[in-house]
Amino acid sequence: MGTKFDLSRVLEDLENTSTLDELGAVAVGLRDKLKIDHIVYHWVDGGGDQYGCTTYPDAWVARYQERNYHRIDPVILGCFQRFQPVDWKALDWSGKVAKAFLKDALAHGVGNQGYSIPIRGPNGQFALFTVNHSCTDDAWQAFIGAYGRELILIAHYFNRKALEFERSRQPDSPRSLSPREIDAMTLLALGYSRAQVAHSLSISEHTLRVYIESARAKLGALNTTHAIAKALSRGLIVV
C-alpha cells in the first residue's frame, strides 16, 4: 500500500476532467497508484440527494441506495456538519444498526479501514472524500501519516470539479452582478458618496438605491459596506 506518487500529476489529471465519468476514471487511477482498495467522492445535499463517484462494487452502491444507508451510515453521520478529517476508528460503530451496516459493507467488499475528509463548500455544500482499505491499524496509520495532506488537497479538487460540472446543484449559487450594479458598487468602493455616484452614472439617487439594494441582496450582504467587501473578495468588482 502506498507509493511515492506525484501529486501535481493527479491534480493535473483532475483538472482535465469534464464529466463525472472522467472523474471516476481518475479515482480508479489514483486508487491503483496508492495501492488501496477504494476511493469515494460523495456529495450529499440537504434533500438526501446523492452525487459522486466510487470504486466500490456496483452491488454495494446499489444496496446502499436501495436501503437509504446514507441515513444511518456512521461515516456520514459522524462527518456531517464537521470539517476535520476523520479516521473511521474514531466514529461510533457501537449501535445495533451501525454494526449491521458495517457487517453488510464488509460482506460487499468494503475494507475495514477508512479515512474520510469532510468538505465544506460554498453556501453550506457538504461532500465527503474517503479512502478505504483492508489492513492492520498500524499500516493504516502509517499510510494516513504519509498521505494525509495530499488526500485533503485531492479531496477538494474532486469537489471543485463536481461543483463545476453541477452548477445547478449548488445551493443558492451566488449570482453575478449586472453591469449597472457593478458600476455603482465600484464607485462606492472607490469612496464616492451616493450623490457623486448617482451623478457619475447620470441616474437619480433613488435609482442608485435600487441598484445598491439589488447588489446587496444578490451578495447576501448585511449592508452596503458588507456588500462592497463581498463583491471585492469574490472578484466581481475591481478597484
Partner: peptide
C-alpha cells in the same frame, strides 16, 4: 476557509485582493 468565513466575506478587502481560500 473553503466555506463562508469572515476573512473573505467581511475583511476580503484587507488581504490584497486575493481571497484566503484553501483546504489547508
Amino acid at each position: 476557509t473553503t466555506g463562508p468565513v469572515m476573512v473573505t466575506d467581511v475583511f476580503g478587502h484587507l488581504t490584497g485582493g486575493q481571497p484566503i481560500r484553501s483546504p489547508l
